[in-house]
Amino acid sequence: MKSVARRLALIMGLGLILGIAAQPTQAQSLAELKARGSLKVGMLVDFPPFGIINTDNKPDGYDADVARALADNLGLKLDLVAVTGPNRIPYLLSGQIDVLVASLGITPERAEKVTFSKPYAGIRTAVIGTAGTDFSTPDKLIGKRVGLARASTQDIAFTKVAKEGTLIQRFDDDASAVQALLSGQVDAIGCSNVVVDQILKVAPGRFEEKFPLSQQVQGIAVRPGSTEFLGAVDKFLVELKTSGKLNDISKKWLGAPAAEFVLKTN
C-alpha cells in the first residue's frame, strides 16, 4: 500500500515538474491584470538594503518601495511574493508571479530568458583619489598605493585592470579602506557610488572620482513577449525618475541620491 502511495506521489511529482517545464511561458497582458485587480511582484528578502523583512515581518526595502509605486501607478493591489536568487527567474517564467522587482542585474545571459525594463537601480564602482592628482587611467597608478576592500566587486574589477607595480593594499572592509584614504595612508581607493557619495560628504573638496571600474544596473523583469505590460512598466519608471520619487527611495535606503546612470530616462 505504502509503496503504491509513494509511486503515485512520485508520478504526481514528476508530472508537476514536467507540467511546469512544458508550460509555455505566457506573455503577461495588462487586461488580465486589471481583471484580477492585483499585481504579484517577486522580490528578494535577503538582500539588504534592496530587499529585507522589516520589524513587522513584512517584505520591505528599495525593491519593495519601487514595487509599491508600480502597483499604485497601474491601479492594482500589491501582492509581494518572496523569491530567492536562484528561483526568481523560474518563478516569473512559470507564471507564479507577474513581474520581478528583485535586484536582478541586467546581463545578456538573463536577457535571453526574461525581458528587462529600463534600469531602476544600479551599483557602480570607481577609483577615487586626492583632488587635483592625475589618476585618470590605471597606468597613472603605478607606484601609487590603492586601497581596496578584500574580495569586493571593486577589488576584482581593479585587480583586473591594475598595472604591474601598483601597490594594492587590501583591507577587511570598506570602512577601513575609506579610513586609509582619509588619513592619507593610500593615494586612492576603489569603492561603490554609495561610498563615493559618503566620502564627498564627509570631506568636501579633498577627493574626486578618477575613473570608473564596473557598472551594473538592475531592471524590472517581465515574461518575454509582454510588450504592452513592459511599455507600462517603462512609462512608470520614467515618471518615477522625473518626479524625483526614485531619488527619495534611493536616499531612504542607500543614503544617497540615485546615480546619474540610473536616473537617465532614454
Binding site: 586601497g147 574580495a151 577589488d155 583591507f171 577587511d172 586609509a180
Partner: peptide, 19 residues
C-alpha cells in the same frame, strides 16, 4: 596586522580564501 593591509600570513590566507 592584516587589518591595516600589512601582507602577513593571515592576510595571504584571507586573499587566497576570497579568490
Amino acid at each position: 596586522v592584516s587589518a591595516i593591509s600589512a601582507g602577513d600570513l593571515a592576510a595571504a590566507g584571507n586573499d587566497i580564501q576570497s579568490r
